[in-house]
């Protein structure tokens, strides 16, 4: 009933959220102030939670297809190598300073909001249910991060300068969110009008609006964009993230605590 496309798509969503959450967790204990430290840790936990739901569903379907039970959320997260990960390149980029991290969250959460907002209508009930739950979380991430983008962009000379730098660095990694792969389009079969191109337009409109309020330079939409993450071709950063994240399970297979 569910072809490989679904599993690939689930892994793409799961991997993106997991790597996002793993990256954000690096801030835990290092936030600029206690309150924001907790806020970003909450967001990290939200995205890891989303990843878990998608992994669990992917594991269930892989097992159903193979008639086994050896695939679990843990084997998917801990025992796949970088080239098998399908996460967006954006999510694996270094956190940089607070402003760069905030802008990365804003770009990603905005995209999630639009994608999940469509997925709640998909005929695949399991995916729709996860999207419905996640949508509330990412709506908050959007609000929280857009406030920060405006606060820092329209803040001091230094915060503005740092946001401009972050924007210049991150922008070329946003295009990949809207480059369609073969496993994506079948998920939206019900929505005749759906295309990543319309998502891109909605996303860009909203982002431009926020950047404008933040008094930041609007980047060119049709500039060069990096790609590859969705197909397993990653930056050098992912290997290091996985090395740290997967160490325990690789060194002590099946270890629990």
């Amino acid at each position: 009933m569910h072809g490989d496309n679904t599993t690939d798509y689930l892994l793409f969503l799961a991997d993106s959220s997991l790597i996002m959450g793993q990256r954000l967790s690096e801030w835990t204990g290092h936030g600029p102030m206690l309150e924001q430290d907790i806020a970003i840790t909450n967001i990290s936990l939200d995205t890891i939670g989303q990843a878990r739901y998608f992994y669990q569903l992917a594991a269930k379907r892989q097992n159903e297809k193979a008639g086994g039970s050896e695939v679990t959320e843990d084997t998917l997260a801990y025992l796949r190598d970088a080239h098998q990960y399908r996460n967006l390149l954006l999510t694996e980029l270094p956190n940089g300073d607070w402003g760069q991290t905030i802008l990365k969250i804003y770009f990603y959460a905005n995209w999630q909001k639009l994608i999940y907002g469509k997925l709640i209508y998909t005929s695949d009930k399991d995916i729709a249910a996860i999207a419905d739950k996640a949508l509330k979380e990412v709506q908050y991430h959007v609000n929280w991060s857009s406030d920060w983008v405006k606060r820092l962009g329209d803040g001091t000379a230094e915060s503005h300068e740092r946001m401009e730098r972050a924007l210049e660095y991150l922008w070329p990694y946003t295009g990949e969110m809207f480059m369609e792969t073969d496993y994506e389009s079948p998920q939206f079969e019900r929505d005749k009008d759906f295309s990543l191109d319309t998502i891109r337009k909605e996303w860009t409109e909203e982002v431009y609006h926020t950047l404008q309020e933040a008094t930041l330079t609007l980047p060119q939409a049709d500039t060069f964009m990096h790609k590859g993450g969705k197909k397993g071709v990653h930056t050098e950063y992912l290997g290091y993230i996985l090395a740290e994240m997967q160490f325990l399970q690789r060194a002590y297979p099946g270890c629990e605590w």
Binding site: E35, Q36, R151
Partner: peptide
């Protein structure tokens, strides 16, 4: 109590710190 730059941020932080 908590530290925040303005009321909106204070409410968001309160949500994150005290209603988890």
């Amino acid at each position: 109590s908590l530290h925040a730059a303005d009321a909106k941020m204070a409410i968001e932080s309160a949500r994150d710190v005290y209603t988890r």
